[in-house]
Design a protein around this nucleic acid. Structure first.
Length: 169
DNA sequence: TGCACGATCTCG
DNA sequence: GAGATCGTGCAT
């Protein structure tokens, strides 16, 4: 297996979110051991128009990495205790990202962040060259379902109703 | 300089 | 069903 090419991440977030299902997330720990996880649940966030996307507020210190080229990591702290793991997608100045909500049998973006020991140092980590986290190719999964996104009540009906959550079944 | 608010989870 | 817990963004 090999790492996904940069071109993979340059597609739009909805496409990447769907194709990431079944792919292998590799995490190398400080002691040199590595663990591989199968991605089972993702969510897409589509740019400044998407009221549920952090970039809808425009370019800030926190959202800056979403404006860069796809293939980078976007992490941020939520509720003061959970690091959320996202993958930036799309071209430069096209702020999109895919939230990793589930890996293996771990479902819940907060749990994923904790399990992977995510923290601020992973902000803007490049998945193509990083030695501690990357994603490897794997066959697409044939069975998956879609659903509306979670935890974005403030985004309004139009954006809440988008079926941009992808789950391996 | 201060404050309200979350893409959540766990416990009672 | 509520609390934990803190960086970020916007209002003073």
């Amino acid at each position: 297996m090999k790492r996904l090419p940069v071109e993979f991440y340059k597609q739009d977030a909805v496409t990447v979110a769907e194709k990431l299902l079944g792919k292998i997330l590799v995490r190398v720990w400080e002691d040199g051991n590595e663990t591989r996880y199968r991605i089972t649940e993702t969510e897409a966030y589509m740019g400044e128009e998407d009221k549920a996307c952090h970039a809808c507020k425009g370019r800030t210190l926190r959202t800056e990495v979403m404006y860069s080229e796809g293939g980078k990591v976007y992490v941020y702290l939520i509720y003061g205790m959970y690091w959320m793991l996202n993958v930036v997608t799309g071209e430069v100045n096209d702020p999109q990202a895919v939230l990793i909500r589930g890996i293996d049998n771990i479902v819940g973006s907060g749990k994923v962040g904790r399990l992977l020991k995510m923290d601020k140092s992973f902000y803007a980590e490049n998945l193509s060259i990083s030695t501690r986290i990357w994603i490897e190719d794997a066959p697409n999964v044939s069975e998956f379902s879609t659903a509306s996104r979670v935890g974005i009540d403030y985004a309004g009906e139009e954006w809440k109703s988008k079926l941009w959550r992808f789950i391996v079944t």
